[in-house]
Design a protein around this nucleic acid. Structure first.
Length: 505
RNA sequence: GGCCCGUUCGUCUAAGGGCUAGGACACCACCCUUUCACGGUGGUGAUACGGGUUCGAAUCCCGUACGGGCUACCA
């Protein structure tokens, strides 16, 4: 029987959720949905010193906004809980001790000062960062050097200690990565990573293996930055549960910023967001803007992230989440890192705004307008959104593109009008107002027809009058075709705007 | 420094030995439009380098260069 696909996303709740994290969630989610499996969210909070208030709530909010809701999590429950590693603390020690018993790990009593001393002592230009490895192991205070008796005594006395994996000498560890194929490591070159910390909490290395096993994870996806420690995890699987039970790994390529790996600390300093949603650091109160607040649609955000490192082999670029689920495959994930291109990201959003129904956009647009003290009437709003959404890349663009429909201009781009403004043109508009007063057909076509008739009668080229007309109605040189604007504005408001502008020009 | 991963237009990528290396974003030009967009047409622009293997290499192998990641009792 083929086991049911189970995947997990395991963030540490230490701050904002960035692009790469969301993409990892997305690939997990797509994979789980595609194969009818389950998507688990596990909180990796084994480092209590890095606990950040509100970070877990924030992660859930981001996932909800993205529409990537887990099947199992601290919030959603499930049969493999608890889903916070801090709440699973007791069981890790058991596995760590089992490893020590079998000779695959050992107790180490070195203090942080001892470690620092060791690093300084062995640091050379050729080896700037000495590792606690098989060569150094024999020179430190641990159960390998101290012997059974002394070790037992220290343990008895409650001496602070950690458990380290004893990396074997000159063994080759390899595994098949779903994206990269076979990856090979020489164990002699990997250090004796700490598995259980002095406070009794596991490190990531122990926790990820134990929990993936206990939670019956079948496929483990994570960022490429984990590749160097993969041999440790493979060995732990071998020692503890057997390689047959190990999930299939896929190490996702990194998403790069202008200067390498996009990290949480980069915030918005590149001129584009890196977090899914606004994040305020509770300690410094520093706010980092998110894609949501910047005006991205979640569908667009998901779409652009999916295509950053993956494609379906065709030239299709716009995908709904359903289409992504159907077409996704880990084998088609590109192995090289991808530099994030904000211009293209905006293009994706533009495309999604264009294909979204006005009714879907309406609540958000209304909110945005309200924030700018413009109250939009519902009757007009849908028509307006349909007219202007082609020219909006980000949601806030609607403020400029749609705002003038609901509030009369208070400033006018007179610089574009004045140079060619004259009495004849003013008279034209006076005449046109009269014409409009008695108009019964208020369609764009009718408005344009009468506009041209009056212009021709006055002996002025209609084209020369359109720009002033636009500035009268809009305030500036932007917006949809001018007669469509007038049509939506209605008779009273259109005439009112012309009269007002005539006083200013 | 060591280890690991990677390398096709400026950017994201297609082409799993075989036509003039395709598409998208961005950029430029033209068309449409007497605003700005949308749309349409066209254009500039890439296989890092050197060796092999092969009738034939972007594709397979080796080396070099470059880029990235890791090198914590962080994840």
């Amino acid at each position: 029987m083929i086991p049911k696909v189970r995947v997990r996303f395991a963030p540490s709740p230490t701050g904002g959720l960035h692009l790469g994290g969301v993409r990892t969630v997305l690939y997990n989610y797509l994979f789980a949905r595609k194969y009818g499996g389950e998507f688990v969210l596990r909180i990796e909070d084994t480092d209590q010193s890095r606990f950040v208030e509100g970070a877990e709530d924030y992660i859930f909010n981001c996932l909800e906004w993205c529409g990537l809701v887990p099947d199992e999590s601290p919030r959603h429950g499930g049969n493999y809980g608890p889903y916070r590693q801090s709440e699973r603390k007791p069981q890790y020690r058991e596995y760590a001790e089992k490893l020590v018993e079998k000779g695959y790990a050992y107790y180490a009593f070195d203090t942080p000062e001892d470690l620092e001393k060791m690093r300084n002592e062995f640091k050379t230009p050729e080896n700037p960062s000495p590792q606690y490895d098989s060569k150094i192991r024999g020179k430190m205070r641990n159960s390998v050097t101290l012997g059974a008796e002394e070790t037992a005594k220290l343990l008895e006395e409650g001496t602070r200690h950690v458990v380290r994996i004893k990396m074997p000498q000159e063994e080759t560890v390899s595994f098949i990565d779903m994206i990269r194929g076979e990856v090979t490591f020489d164990t002699s070159l990997v250090d004796d990573k700490v598995l259980l910390k002095a406070d009794g909490m596991p490190t990531y290395h122990l926790a990820v293996v134990v929990d993936d096993y206990l939670m019956k994870i079948t496929h483990a996806f994570r960022g490429e930055e984990w590749l160097p420690s993969a041999p440790v995890h493979v060995l732990l699987w071998k020692y503890l549960f057997g390689l047959e039970a190990m999930p299939q790994w896929a190490h996702l390529p990194l998403i790069l910023g202008p200067n390498g790996k996009l990290s949480k600390r980069d915030g918005a300093k590149y001129g584009f967001p890196v977090f899914a949603m606004n994040w305020t650091d509770p300690k410094t109160n520093e706010l980092t803007e998110g894609f949501k607040e910047k005006g991205f649609l979640p569908e667009a955000f998901i779409n652009l992230l999916a295509l950053l490192g993956w494609n379906d082999g065709s030239e299709k670029e716009l995908f709904t989440i359903e289409e992504l689920i159907e077409n996704f495959s880990m084998e088609r994930v590109h192995s090289g890192g991808a530099k994030f291109d904000y211009e293209k990201a905006k293009w994706f959003n533009h495309e999604w705004i264009k294909k979204s129904d006005a009714a879907v956009l309406a609540p958000q647009v209304k909110q945005l307008l309200a924030e700018n003290n413009i109250s939009a009437t519902d009757e007009m709003l849908l028509a307006v959104i349909d007219k202007v959404k082609d020219r909006c890349n980000l949601l806030p663009d609607f403020v400029q593109q749609a705002g003038f429909f609901f509030s009369n201009p208070t400033t006018w781009d007179t610089a574009s009008v004045s140079p060619k403004w004259n009495e004849d043109k003013k008279n034209f508009f006076l005449t046109y107002i009269n014409q409009l007063q008695s108009a019964t057909d208020w369609s764009p076509v009718a408005l344009e027809t009468s506009f041209k008739e009056v212009a021709t009668t006055a002996g002025i080229k209609p084209g020369e009058l359109q720009l002033p007309f636009r500035v009268m109605l809009v305030g500036g040189k932007f917006g949809p075709p001018v007669f469509e604007i007038a049509s939506i504005l209605g008779k009273e408001n259109t005439i009112q705007r012309i009269q007002k502008a005539l006083e200013v020009f």
